[in-house]
Simulated scan of single mutants.
Amino acid sequence: MREIVFDTETTGVEPDKGDRIVEIGAIELVNHLPTGRHFHEYIDPERPMPAEAFAVHGLGDDFLRGKPKFAQIAARWIEFIGSDTKLIAHNARFDFGFINAEFRRIGQPLLDDRRMIDTLAMARSKFPGAGNSLDALCRRFGIDNSNRDLHGALIDTHLLAEVYLELIGGRQPDLILAPQPQKSEQRTIAAPVAAVPAGPRPAPLAPRLTESESAAHAEFVAKLGESAIWRRWMPG
């Protein structure tokens, strides 16, 4: 089972009014374990960085000048996320909204909401009324986020992957580490059948019930009377 955990940093919160993505970070999970494959890009938003957004992630105009534009990294991003892989994000509608706004600009099909797994919604359902920001969830689950001075897409993605695994019940590698055959490799293998020796059946073992145990059983069955269901098919 392949999943992609991802995060975006942006120039603001309104993609429909011209805010753009400035960073994407994503990591691949297979059977809920990181594979080591990741995607990370800083992106030229083709517009000035507002001070409010700069205070969140620290990505300014000088740093982003000369970085690739979204259209230049889109093909690699689309290849990395695949066509039907589940996409996990914290407040996923925000990130889906920005990705889809960028896709509209370059004429790409939009992400299907059915691919979305929102860890914020999961956390709110599991811990109603509690703080469910990424930092709050890291504290709740004992995840070290000491390197998170500012928001950064790649570091947030690694933290979110750990939070996601806790939200679904924690890692259970003993259940998923055993390699599973691909569908094309699956075979139906008949269990070996022991050979039946020719000739008469061997004499049965002698009964191990004592006389007192047999008498107690007979007395118990007699008390059942006609309610003993096997009496309908066996002589008394």
Rank of each mutant, 00 (worst) to 15 (best):
M1K: 13
M1R: 08
V5L: 09
V5Y: 04
F6M: 13
D7I: 02
T11V: 01
V13W: 07
V13T: 15
G18N: 00
I24E: 06
G25Q: 15
A26K: 09
E28Y: 05
P34K: 14
G36R: 14
H38Q: 15
F39T: 13
H40T: 04
P48T: 13
A53I: 04
A53D: 03
G58M: 05
L59W: 09
L59F: 11
G60C: 00
G60R: 00
D61Q: 05
D62Q: 15
F63N: 00
F63C: 03
P68R: 08
K69M: 04
I73S: 11
A74C: 06
A74H: 08
I78N: 09
I78F: 07
S83V: 15
K86I: 03
K86P: 04
N91K: 02
I99L: 14
E102D: 05
R105W: 05
G107I: 04
G107T: 03
Q108D: 06
P109F: 07
L111N: 09
R114H: 08
R115P: 13
A121V: 11
A121N: 06
A123T: 02
R124L: 05
R124W: 01
R124Y: 04
S125I: 05
K126C: 00
A130S: 11
G131Q: 12
L134K: 07
D135L: 04
R139T: 06
I143N: 07
N145C: 03
I155S: 13
L159C: 05
L159Q: 05
L160M: 10
Y164L: 07
I168T: 09
G170L: 11
L175D: 05
I176G: 02
P179G: 05
S184D: 09
E185H: 15
A190H: 07
A190C: 07
A191V: 06
V193T: 10
V193Q: 13
A194F: 09
A195K: 14
V196Q: 08
A198I: 11
P200W: 04
R201D: 12
P202H: 12
P204D: 14
R208N: 10
L209F: 11
V221P: 09
A228V: 10
I229H: 11
P235F: 04
